[in-house]
Amino acid sequence: MVISWVWTGMVAISLFYGLLTGQGGNLSGGISRGAQEGITLAISLAGSLCLWSGVGKVMEKIGLTALLGRLLKPVLYKVFPSCKTDSILQGYLSGNICANFLGLGNAATPMGIAAAKRLASHRKDSVASNELCRLIVLNTASIQCIPATVAAVRSSLGAASPFDILPAVWVSSLCSAGLGLLCAKVLGKIWD
C-alpha cells in the first residue's frame, strides 16, 4: 500500500511541476520511453540473475553457508549474546547473515524472520529487545560479497569492468553496518 502512495506521489509531482514550468509537454514521451526502459532493464538483468541464482543454489548445496557460519561465530557471540545459550537462535542468525553475504536473498529472509520471532519470544511484551533491533539494523545494511544486480546493470550499460566497484562496495557496506550497529548499541543504552 505504501508503494501505491509513493508511485501516485511521483506521478502527481511530475504532472504539477511540469504544468508549472511548462515542461509538461515532454511527459507523454517520457512515459513511453520509461515503459520501454523497464523491459530493457529486465532483459539486461535476466542473464546475470539466471547465473547468480544458479551459483547460489550450488553454494547452498555444498554447505558454504554452514562453513561461513562457523567462521563467523566469534562475531556472532559479540553482537548477539543470547546465542551462547540458545543454539537454535544461533543457527537462524548465522544462516541469515551468511545467506545475505552470499547474495541468497530467498534464503536469508525466512531465516532472519525465524531469528526475529525467536528473539521476540524471549520476552513477554511486544517491545523490541536490543538484540532484535540489532538484527534488523544488520539486515537493513546489506553486507554482500557479490552485488550481482548492480554489476548486471553496469555491464548492460557498457562498463569497462562491471565488478571493479567490489572493493568500494565492501568498504562502504562494512562501514554502514558497523556504524549502524554502534549507533544501535549507544541508543540501546539510553532508549527505553
Binding site: W7, M10, V11, I13, S14, L15, Y17, G18, T21, Q23, G24, N26, L27, G29, G30, I31, R33, G34, A35, E37, G38, I39, L41, A42
Partner: peptide, 17 residues
C-alpha cells in the same frame, strides 16, 4: 514493477523534478 517504476522515474526526470 520495473516498467511501472521506470515510467514514474522517467516522468520525474522529463518534468524537471
Amino acid at each position: 514493477t520495473l516498467v511501472m517504476m521506470l515510467i514514474a522515474v522517467s516522468m520525474l526526470r522529463v518534468s524537471g523534478v
